[in-house]
Design a protein around this nucleic acid. Structure first.
Lengths: 256, 256
DNA sequence: AAACGCGTTCTCACTGAGTGAGAAGAATGT
DNA sequence: ACATTCTTCTCACTCAGTGAGAACGCGTTT
């Protein structure tokens, strides 16, 4: 599982960043030795830097002596994409109140969709996507919406690569996918059935700001309820509209 | 507003961290020059490091040329305190479904409470606390719960300092607060009225894991509805219980 | 109880990566 | 057209960062 986390240059900063990077896709708690191994750095160097990061608050030493990402990084992370997340969130919650289906908001990061917000309760725990998690662009409704928002050269290049097939029903044929992306662009929404997980269906629509698709809003529920898709469409549409209006509006100051 | 972000040492890492720190409490979009000023670093040094951070994904250059915190930091931040947030979240949502009042979860960080999760819809936007935001420990219900979980020497030291009074009703007298903290410890919950904002009331209870108060769960609603506090107590209690059970249980694997 | 494995902590002499003043160029405002 | 502010880049100097290696701590195995 441990990828060959190669160091870009011999720069000090890149080493420090390698250490933070060692926590990406980890169990969350790492010893100094493990960090060193994952970051491909000498032990003493790692030790020194881990301490510097700890003092700053970027890392935190747990009661078991292992290190984990500190809350200062979490706080800092809250600054990223704040406009979108803050303005969209209340309407995602409204949509959940209305439907009680899992709602999520994703953006494109490279060749994956990144889930930036997600509403769910203990009744239906999310099965594949999680906040902060990534999924391929071709196998989910939000992914296809985000892919469709990219220029043709991007779509073609994406479909050229080896495409994962999480289920036996996942479409990976570039020709068919090109067709499907065309449909998404024309219709303004995407519906995928059992592409990422059996018995799961997802619907998604683009969120547009300044003429650009900045995110995709989606709903997920059981595949056998496919007839209900029509019922949810207007609610999804309405939510997207409200988000778009909120995005354009003046800043709403919350708290401090 | 710009605090004198002093550099701990002349170490390269501390400089890089100063740059990230420049975004804390900022508007979100900063020019290189502004970053340099806030981080107290020479312009050329800042320039070089900003680019290194950008290449790694820690910073992102917006369409206006200004820099903002990148999603890689956000993703990394999702690793911090994941156990608590992941396990508690579905039950916070359940509580919101039940009450439709603003629900939040906070931990103590230093002498402040840090809001790590929050459920709200567009009906009642949060007024003072936001996810990733901080508030003083003595003026909110979650804060008092978290304060009460600390040893006496901590409480005494905290109350010794100059205490903020966000409203005219905020209690800042150390004697009275000591008494109130005692009540919280005895009763296992805290109710505060108009301590942080006029016309706001909050109730909170501690979340205990391994014999330690790791967080506080709270509800906020309008002060004039103070009679309803009793109605919410069992629901809060039940939610806390479920969170505590979930915290102790085996890991529930959600997606990747 | 000794040997082992695995992790942490710390020292120190060497050296090349990081430094930052400064200048030129690009943008923006008045 | 001028003033102001911000970005980008160069280069000679030097001091901060480096990492092998040793010592130590702590469970577990033999």
């Amino acid at each position: 599982m441990a990828e060959p986390q190669h160091i870009r240059g011999p720069s000090v900063t890149s080493r420090a960043l390698s250490i933070l990077g060692a926590f990406e896709g980890s169990s969350g708690n790492l010893t100094v030795a493990r960090i060193a191994a994952r970051a491909n750095l000498p032990l003493s160097t790692t030790y020194r830097m881990v301490h510097e990061l700890e003092e700053w608050g970027g890392l935190r030493k747990g009661s078991d002596g292992k290190y984990q990402v500190g809350f200062r990084i979490w706080e800092l992370g809250q600054m990223a994409g704040r406009r979108l997340r803050d303005r969209a969130h209340p309407f995602l919650q409204d949509l959940f109140d209305l439907t009680h289906e899992n709602v999520h908001l994703a953006i494109r990061e490279g060749t994956q969709s990144l889930y930036v917000d997600k509403i769910y309760s203990s009744r239906k725990m999310p099965q594949v996507s999680r906040i902060g998690g990534r999924l391929p662009l071709h196998a989910t409704a939000v992914g296809r919406v985000l892919l469709g928002a990219q220029p043709d050269w991007f779509v073609d290049a994406y479909l050229q690569r080896e495409l994962e097939a999480p289920t036996t029903k996942t479409v990976t044929d570039p020709r068919i996918l090109t067709q499907l992306i065309g449909d998404v662009r024309r219709d303004g929404y995407s519906v995928t059935i059992e592409q990422m997980r059996m018995n799961a269906l997802s619907v998604a629509m683009p969120v547009v700001f300044n003429g650009q698709t900045v995110a995709a809003l989606g709903l997920v529920f059981e595949a056998f309820r496919y007839r209900e898709v029509q019922r949810f469409m207007p609610q999804l549409r309405g939510t997207v509209d409200r988000i778009e209006v909120a995005m354009a509006g003046r800043p709403v100051h919350i708290g401090e």
